[in-house]
Design a protein around this nucleic acid. Structure first.
Lengths: 233, 233
DNA sequence: CAGTGGTCTAGACCACGAG
DNA sequence: TCGTGGTCTAGACCACTGC
C-alpha cells in the first residue's frame, strides 16, 4: 500500500489533498459526491468516505448532508497537543524527575473557582502546592484543588512519593475538561520557587477536569523560564 | 441512535469507555478481541473496530496487531487546538477587526531562522510587521517572514487590505508545520504597540509552515495582555 | 507461524437538512 | 421532499508482529 495507491483510503486522501493543494478544487467549491469519486477511483464508496471523513476531521473540507462536501474556505489550523504527565515529559528529555510537596491542606474552595467548580460549595477541597524538578532544576510550579467527592481516597494520600498529577491520571479518569494557556509575570513567590528573576514572563496552563458532572480537579501549572510547548501541524 | 445503543459505534464506544472508567478493564490490561466484542454486542466487527479506533486516536487504548488492544497505562491528555485566522477570532468575539501594516520590506533571512528555514539562504525574503486590532484596541503583534520562492505573488502584494495571515491561508496551502507557544516579556517596542506596561508577560505563538520541503512562512504572534488560548478535552 | 488489527467490498437503510 | 453523507453488515484478504 503506497500513498499514491488509489485503492487505499490513505492513497485516496493523498490524491484529494493534491487536488485541493493544486487548486483543482477551489476553496468553497463543492467537490464530487462520494459515489462519483468511488466510481472514478474504482473503489467502494466506504473507502472514499473514510478518506473524506479524515479530511473533514482535519478541517480541510466541510461536509453536510444533502449539501455535499466543500473545500473549506478558511481551513483552520488545527493542532493536536499531547500533554504528558510531567514526570514523563522530563524523563523523555533525558533528565531525572523529582518533585517536592510544598503544601497540603484542606480548605474551602476559593471563591474564584466557584464558577468553574459549581458544585459542593460547602465541602472542603484538598489543596496542594507542588514543585517539579528536572535534574534538580525547578521545572514547573503547581497549585491544585482536588474535589474529595470525586476522589475520596485522595484525602488519605500524602502525595509525596507519587505526584497528584500522576495519581489522578491513574485513579480518577475524567470524561471531559477545559484547558487554557496564558502568560504570567513571576511574582515574589514564583520567582523564588522557579529560580527566575522577578517579573519574568512564564508560560502557564490551567486545567479543570470533570467526571460526568462532578468536577475532579483544578490545576494551574506554571513553567520555569524558557519553556515552550511544541506541536506539529 | 442513542449513546447507550450498542448497535451504533458511538454507543459501543460509550460502553467501552464506561468499562474503562469503572475499571472493569484495568490500565495495562488487554481487552477482548474485536471479534469477541462484536459477538457480545451483536454487531459486525467493523462497528467495534470503528469504536476502538476512535478510542485509540484519543489515546485511551493502545492497539497492536497480534498483541491486541490494551487500556493505556498513561492516558496522555490529548487536546485539539483550533487556531483560527485572527480576523475570525476577533469577529467571533463580537468585535470589529482591523489591522495595520507597520513595516514591509525585502531582506535577507535572519541567521536565527536559517536552521528552521534551511533552504534558499541566498534569496531575500519578505518581512512584515503587522498589528491586529479588536475594536481599535491592540490585539496581537505579528512579525512574519515569507519565502518568496514558495509564494512569489506575495512580492507584489501590499497586505494593507487583506492581512498576510489571511492571504497565505487562502493562497499558499501548507502540508505541515511546527507550532510552539511560550511567554515573553513586553520590551520597549512591544509595550508600545500592545499598549501594555513594560515587562508585562505576554502570550506568544510561533509557527513555521512548509509546502512539502519548501518553507512558506515563519510567523511570531504576540498577544495583548490577558490573552488566553482555550480548548476542551 | 498464526492470531490480531487494518482495510476493502457491495449492498443496504437511515438521518439530516437544504431547497 | 429527496439527495447526500453517516453508518451498519457479512464476508474477505492482508500486514504486521509476538510467540
Amino acid at each position: 500500500m503506497s500513498l499514491s495507491d488509489t485503492n487505499s483510503w490513505k492513497g485516496i486522501r493523498t490524491e484529494l489533498l493534491r487536488r485541493i493543494h493544486d487548486r483543482i478544487w477551489q476553496p468553497g467549491e463543492q467537490i464530487p459526491h462520494e459515489a462519483d469519486l468511488a466510481e472514478e477511483f474504482g473503489c467502494a464508496r466506504t473507502t472514499v468516505n473514510r478518506a473524506l471523513r479524515d479530511l473533514a476531521q482535519s478541517g480541510l473540507v466541510v461536509r453536510k448532508r444533502r449539501a455535499g462536501t466543500r473545500v473549506a474556505l478558511n481551513p483552520p489550523q488545527r493542532a493536536t497537543l499531547t500533554i504528558p504527565i510531567i514526570r514523563e515529559e522530563i524523563e523523555a528529555l533525558g533528565h531525572t524527575y523529582r518533585h517536592s510537596l510544598l503544601e497540603r491542606d484542606l480548605r474551602p474552595l476559593p471563591p474564584v473557582l466557584h464558577g468553574a467548580f459549581q458544585v459542593t460549595l460547602g465541602a472542603d477541597v484538598l489543596f496542594l502546592k507542588t514543585l517539579h524538578f528536572a535534574d534538580d532544576r525547578p521545572y514547573a510550579y503547581e497549585e491544585r484543588y482536588i474535589n474529595l467527592e470525586a476522589a475520596p481516597e485522595a484525602r488519605d494520600l500524602a502525595f509525596d512519593r507519587i505526584s497528584a498529577n500522576e495519581w489522578l491520571v491513574h485513579n480518577a479518569p475524567y470524561t471531559h475538561g477545559d484547558l487554557s494557556f496564558f502568560a504570567v509575570n513571576a511574582g515574589d513567590n514564583l520567582s523564588r520557587q522557579l529560580d527566575a528573576a522577578e517579573g519574568t514572563a512564564l508560560f502557564a496552563m490551567e486545567r479543570i477536569t470533570w467526571s460526568a458532572d462532578l468536577p475532579i480537579t483544578h490545576v494551574r501549572l506554571i513553567f520555569a523560564p524558557g519553556y515552550r510547548m511544541r506541536t506539529e501541524i
